[in-house]
């Protein structure tokens, strides 16, 4: 057996990030579980609650509840669980992306890493792969746990809707991670504030876009646009245009990271 491991930076990143991944995944899963377990109790009261939720004007529109029946599992899941999954996954992906490169300079470990015979391209590639792998693992665990929760409360699994909502949230994570990875290449200190701020801002931009038609263009900016449960359930699929824009932005972030970090001075 070889003593050293292949993809040592990738493995190292996964080892360094495993606690954060476990905590974030567990927390989001617990919150989603609580929501799913509340559904059977709420279902019986949905006639009254549904009327209440659909008559709160802008607030109702912001969360897409004017177009959804939250008395159904898919409607309820897309609003309640979709929000937790979308925002929680976005925050995790943003933090992962924005700290990926900057943490080396913040922790003064860049000197350790870059004085070994590894190309900066290899560092970027293995770090990016580790970011994507962690987002994929989180989303996979959350999908499986959600399916288990739905099964446990005795509901029939709406496969297509659930897969679309989770798929959209996975893409949202990829987009934010890609953009934040690009930002990370410029930072010398912690990027936590930038990552969290960006994720929360984009989340609110989508709420604003839902509230007024005049702000509908914001859907092209925020990745939460293609994660909107009401749109996904109405169309029975994701908005390919919005997803394409999002993935192009993610790719741009990655390209920027390669260009910047390749020649960055490590002081």
């Amino acid at each position: 057996m070889r003593y050293y491991e292949k993809m040592s930076i990738f493995r190292h990143e996964l080892r360094q990030g495993r606690s954060a991944l476990a905590i974030w995944t567990f927390s989001i899963a617990v919150l989603m579980g609580i929501c799913v377990f509340l559904f059977p109790e709420m279902k019986g009261e949905m006639d009254a609650v549904g009327d209440l939720f659909s008559s709160m004007g802008g607030f109702t529109a912001a969360f897409g509840m004017d177009r959804l029946n939250i008395g159904t599992l898919t409607g309820f899941y897309s609003v309640e669980c979709g929000s937790i999954l979308g925002l929680g996954g976005a925050l995790f992906a943003a933090l992962l992306g924005v700290s990926s490169l900057s943490k080396e300079e913040r922790g003064k470990t860049a000197e350790f890493l870059l004085t070994h015979p590894v190309t900066r391209k290899r560092i970027l590639t293995e770090k990016l792969a580790a970011v994507l792998a962690q987002i994929a693992v989180m989303n996979l665990i959350l999908l499986v746990s959600s399916l288990a929760f739905i099964k446990l409360v005795g509901e029939k699994i709406p496969w297509k809707e659930i897969l679309l909502i989770h798929g959209a949230c996975f893409l949202l994570g990829l987009e934010l991670a890609g953009i934040c990875f690009g930002i990370s290449a410029f930072l010398r200190r912690s990027g936590t504030g930038i990552g969290m701020g960006l994720a929360v801002m984009l989340y609110f931009l989508n709420l604003i876009a839902n509230m007024t038609e005049h702000a509908g263009f914001l859907k092209y900016i925020t990745p939460f646009g293609y994660c909107e449960g009401a749109d996904i359930l109405e169309k029975g699929g994701l908005d390919a245009g919005l997803v394409t824009i999002g993935m192009l932005l993610a790719a741009a972030g990655v390209v920027v990271a390669y260009c910047k970090y390749g020649s960055k001075e490590i002081r």
Partner: peptide, 12 residues
Amino acid sequence: ELSAGLRRQDCR
């Protein structure tokens, strides 16, 4: 081990 791994050498 990480340092050796980055060099792809067995330095034990």
